[in-house]
Design a protein around this nucleic acid. Structure first.
Lengths: 224, 224
DNA sequence: CGATGGGGTGTACAGCGTATTCGCCGACGC
DNA sequence: GCGTCGGCGAATACGCTGTACACCCCATCG
C-alpha cells in the first residue's frame, strides 16, 4: 500500500505556496511548480483556491496573519501603534516577496482587515475622531503594512537588464549626489539606505504630527 | 509605391505603448499587441527596446517626464515642493496604469532621477541638511510619485474574482465600520475615499513636520 | 561594383493560467 | 450487498506570454 492518500486542503496549499515564495522568490510561485511541489497535477489546485489571484490573496492573508496587534499600555497610543506596525514590518521582512504582493492586491481579506481594524481601534480608543482616524490611516500609507517604498535601489538586484534608456549622467543630479555623499559619510559600510531607520523616522514624524492634531481637536474642513 | 518605409524608433515605440496603456490598460501592453499597433512583427521591437522590462521603464520615464518642477517663490519651499508633487500626481492621474507600473520598477531612469533631483534640490535650497533631506524623501514615500497607497478599494473594480478566502464578517470590524460610517456621513454621494484630500492631508502634515525639524536644526542620531 | 550593417521577418520554444472532460474512490442509503 | 452520488485528482488542450535565433532586404559607403 503506497501513501494512503492524504487529501489536499486550502491551508496546505497556501502554506506550501508561502514556503515556495520564501525559498525561491515570488516568480517561482506558478500553479505548475506549486502543484509539482505538492505532488499533484496543476488543475488539482483549483479545487482549493479560486485561481492565481486568489492564491496570492491567501498568501498575503497568511503573512498579515502573523502580525500581533499591541494593546495600549498606560494610554500611550503612539507606542501601541508603533509596536503594531513594527510587528507588521517584521512579518513582511520574514517574507520578502510580500511587500510587492501586498501592493498588487485589491481585495481585502480577513487578516488584512483584521490588521486595519486593530490599528483603527487603537486610534479611536486614543480619542481620535473617526474622521481623523480615517485620514491618519491614509497618511500612514504603506507603513500600515510595515514598509515604505524603495526610493533608491539598494543595489541593482536581480539579473542585469537590457537597456536602451540612455544611461543617466551623475553630473545632472548634484543634489542627489550631495545627499548620497552625506549618507555614505555617516554609514561608510552600508550598501543602501537604512530602511529600518527611515521607517521609524517617518512613522514617528507622523505619529507626533497626528497626536498634535488629535489634542487640538482637528476635524476635516467642510467641503463645498 | 506603397508607404515609403518610415523606420521605427524608440520614442515612437514608447509613445504608442503609452497610448495603448492609456486606452486599454496595462494588461493590453504586450509585445505582440504593441507590434500589431505599429504594423510590425513582435521581434522588431527588440531593436528599439531591450525587452518588456525596458519598455515599461521607458513608459514610466515618459510619464514622469511630464512633471514640471516648481521653482521656489518667496523662499516658500513648502509651496514649491507641494506644487511639484501635485504636478507628479497630475501626470500619474493622466495615466492610471502608471501608479502600479512605478511600484514595480527597480531601476531609476533619467526622468525619474530628474524628478527626484528637483525635489531634493528644493529641500537643500531651503536649508535642509543633506541628511535631513534624505530622510524627508523617504518620509514622503510614494507621495514623491504623486500617489498614496489605496487603503480601501474604492469599488471592487475589474472582473469579479473567484474566491475561496472566507468572506469577512462586517461585525468583526467595528472600528473600520465606525470610520466608514463617518466618512459616508461627510460625503454621502462619494463612492470611495477622497484621494485628493488624503494626498494633500498627509503631504501637508509631513511638510509641516519636516519644516519644524529643519528650523530646529535636527540631525540624525549617531549610530553605534 | 561589392561589402557592410542596421532594421524588419519568420519560426520556434518554453512557460504561463485555466476551461473542460473524465475517472477513481470512499461514503451513504436501501 | 449493492447502487449511486459527490468530491477530488488526472489528462488534455487552448490561447497567450516574452524572447532566442537565423534570415533577408535594402540603403549606404568605399
Amino acid at each position: 500500500m503506497p501513501t494512503p492518500r492524504v487529501p489536499l486542503n486550502r491551508s496546505r496549499v497556501l502554506a506550501d505556496a508561502v514556503a515556495l515564495a520564501d525559498g525561491e522568490g515570488a516568480d517561482a510561485v506558478s500553479m505548475r511548480r506549486l502543484a509539482d511541489r505538492l505532488g499533484v497535477v496543476p488543475m488539482a489546485l483549483y479545487k482549493h483556491v479560486g485561481g492565481k489571484d486568489d492564491l496570492v490573496d491567501g498568501m498575503v492573508d497568511a503573512v498579515l496573519g502573523e502580525v500581533v496587534a499591541a494593546r495600549p499600555a498606560d494610554g500611550d497610543w503612539r507606542a501601541a501603534v508603533r509596536a503594531t506596525l513594527l510587528s507588521a514590518r517584521a512579518a513582511v521582512q520574514r517574507h520578502p516577496w510580500a511587500r510587492r504582493a501586498i501592493e498588487t492586491r485589491t481585495v481585502r481579506t480577513p487578516a488584512v482587515l483584521g490588521h486595519m481594524e486593530a490599528v483603527t481601534r487603537l486610534l479611536l480608543d486614543a480619542g481620535f475622531t473617526p474622521d481623523l482616524a480615517h485620514h491618519a490611516m491614509h497618511a500612514l500609507g504603506n507603513r500600515i503594512w510595515g514598509f515604505s517604498p524603495e526610493l533608491f535601489d539598494e543595489d541593482a538586484r536581480g539579473a542585469p537588464r537590457a537597456r536602451t534608456t540612455p544611461q543617466p549622467n551623475p553630473a545632472d543630479y548634484p543634489s542627489i549626489i550631495a545627499v548620497s555623499v552625506e549618507a555614505r559619510r555617516r554609514r561608510p559600510d552600508a550598501t543602501g539606505c537604512d530602511e529600518d531607520f527611515e521607517f521609524t523616522f517617518a512613522l514617528d514624524l507622523l505619529l507626533d504630527a497626528l497626536d498634535r492634531l488629535r489634542s487640538d481637536g482637528w476635524e476635516s474642513p467642510v467641503s463645498g
